[in-house]
């Protein structure tokens, strides 16, 4: 049962990714990618990584994809009405189907015991995860935090550079 759900989720993720990479409209691509990320998060959960599954949803689907949507809407990249032709079910049918499959798998996972298949399930609790992260990999955590700082400074610099160029262009045309 658990492995069947895993295969269903895997093919759901593959289908969502295939739909994602063939879209012309970036907003549609992001929505399909969010579906794929939800399916991947459930696969992580089944492989004994509940914390990674939660962060997959929070960071990827919640933060990174919303950042993509922000940029797409800020730059007005979505085509206005060229892709909106045709019957309505072709627009929201696939994404509704994928979401329903993922929701059904989530509900089915709620009713499954972790060690139902006779094998003791590998399960990393958040406590064990945090102990290993901040004990064995403390130096790596600091390096990664520096990397995030560099990224923030770099993004600020690039954004400020474009702003300065634009204001200069307005002052001395």
């Amino acid at each position: 049962m658990a492995s069947a759900i895993f295969y269903i989720l895997g093919f759901t993720a593959l289908a969502a990714t295939a739909l994602c990479i063939t879209r012309r409209n970036p907003v549609h691509a992001v929505v399909y990618l969010v579906n794929a990320l939800f399916a991947l998060a459930l696969m992580f959960y089944q492989l004994g990584a509940p914390l990674v599954a939660a962060w997959e949803v929070i960071i990827y689907a919640g933060a990174v994809m919303v950042l993509f949507l922000f940029i797409i809407m800020m730059l007005e990249l979505a085509p206005a009405s060229a892709e909106m032709q045709g019957p309505g079910w072709r627009r929201w049918g696939p994404v509704l189907l994928l979401s329903l499959v993922i929701l059904g798998c989530t509900l089915a996972l709620l009713g499954i015991q972790a060690d139902q298949d006779g094998v003791p399930a590998f399960w990393v609790s958040p406590r064990a995860f945090g102990a290993a992260l901040f004990d064995q990999y403390a130096l790596a955590v600091q390096v990664v935090s520096f990397q995030l700082l560099y990224a923030a400074v770099g993004a600020f610099y690039v954004g400020k550079g474009s702003l300065r160029r634009r204001t200069q262009g307005e002052e001395t045309p």
């Binding site: 990174v64 950042l67 730059l75 992260l133 990397q147 990224a151 993004a155 690039v158 954004g159």
Partner: peptide, 24 residues
Amino acid sequence: QIFVIFLMAMTSAEVSISLAMVVY
């Protein structure tokens, strides 16, 4: 799994800086 967390941190750094470059 710890490597996946580092991968996520790397991804968020990469996405922030590359989207700033997209705007630029």
